[in-house]
């Protein structure tokens, strides 16, 4: 088990999902005629590949567009621009009917286990509904499938008739996981799936996610702000800042040799039990810039300790600096401590 949990080799298998220049803008309307006066650029030009069976972590501070990215992939948010290719099919422009096929393949586990279940629906019925929508099972088959699912995620048959409010946070998240794996997907987006849970429960839910990943050969897009969890759980990590991708690399590379100053600052913010007195921390000054009016050049230059004139003018290119280690910085690799 330990080996399974610590193996973080990059699985360069088949590409499952490919994002190409994903953009999501929210228009700001104003004035008497409600004309578009500007755009909040929630996700700006994100391109990446996700391989079969891997866990890709997405980290960044709140408002950096990581949840929007997840919802955009699932089609819960309409894209402003870009291409999503899933299993060699472009899915962003499919009609609802055609999309249903892919709905089975892509699922989402939500952040708040107290808000992601309908409070007036019994758990068993909520899970049965998934089968009602996508299969032609008879009601006894559905019930059996639901009980199997409940057992799979560590719940019991007796939970079938209960309402969501009768469960604890961890149990509800298990129900959310059961719902997500019901249709046997190949890709699951975990949107802050464990951040609302106690640390001890977090560990159990993460283990469960690992177990079902191995069993069903799942790929995860693991959105989180908890770097510790990402380091434990993921194979690769994507760092986002203000809707831009900032750095992408394997967990080892990114945590040991962060290339981008923002990543370095994030990593230095991880609390560590240490007796070392003069541990240097990088404190970023100021707030996240307004995404409706992003800075010129590099989006991070307003807060970057090593910013130069070039950063204000030119947007740094997204480059592979080491093998499978990408970053968007003019001075990638330069330490800021």
């Amino acid at each position: 088990m330990a080996a399974a949990l610590t193996s973080k080799k990059i699985n360069q298998g088949k590409i499952l999902l490919e994002l190409n220049g994903i953009k999501k803008y929210y228009p700001i309307r104003g004035g008497v005629l409600q004309r578009v006066q500007g755009n909040v650029k929630a996700v700006e030009n994100v391109s990446l590949q996700l391989y079969e069976g891997e866990s890709l972590g997405v980290v960044g501070e709140s408002g950096c567009g990581k949840s929007t990215l997840g919802k955009a992939i699932l089609g819960l948010e309409e894209l402003t621009d870009g291409k999503i290719t899933f299993k060699d099919t472009e899915i962003q422009s499919l009609k609802r009917r055609e999309k249903l096929k892919f709905v089975k393949e892509m699922q989402m586990i939500f952040q708040d286990p107290f808000a992601s279940l309908n409070p007036r629906q019994r758990i068993g019925h909520a899970l049965e509904e998934v089968f009602t929508m996508h299969t032609n099972m008879s009601s006894s088959e559905k019930k059996k499938a639901v009980i199997d699912l409940l057992e799979e995620v560590g719940l019991k048959e007796e939970h079938f008739e209960r309402y969501p409010h009768e469960f604890s946070g961890g149990q509800r998240q298990r129900i959310g996981i059961a719902r997500a794996i019901a249709l046997n997907p190949s890709f699951i987006i975990c949107d802050e799936a464990v951040s609302a849970l106690d640390v001890s429960v977090q560990a159990q839910v993460l283990k469960l996610l690992k177990t079902i990943q191995e069993k069903y050969q799942l790929s995860y897009l693991f959105i989180s702000h908890d770097l510790g969890v990402v380091r434990y759980f993921c194979d690769r990590v994507l760092v986002m800042y203000l809707g831009h991708t900032v750095e992408l690399g394997s967990v080892e590379d990114l945590f040991n040799q962060p290339l981008h100053p923002y990543t370095q600052a994030l990593l230095s913010a991880i609390p560590r039990p240490t007796v070392q007195k003069n541990r240097k921390r990088i404190r970023l000054q100021g707030d996240l810039p307004n995404p409706a009016d992003p800075p010129s050049g590099c989006p991070f230059h307003t807060r970057c300790p090593i910013a130069q004139d070039i950063c204000k003018q030119d947007k740094p290119a997204w480059k592979e600096h080491e093998s499978n280690h990408f970053a968007a910085c003019h001075f990638a690799g330069q330490s800021i401590i």
Partner: peptide, 19 residues
């Protein structure tokens, strides 16, 4: 979020509204 969850499961608008 549970409405978002139903949408991500591919539920129709009618199902979401009524159920």
């Amino acid at each position: 979020e549970y409405i978002m969850a139903m949408k991500s499961l591919g539920a129709s608008d009618f199902r979401i509204m009524v159920k």
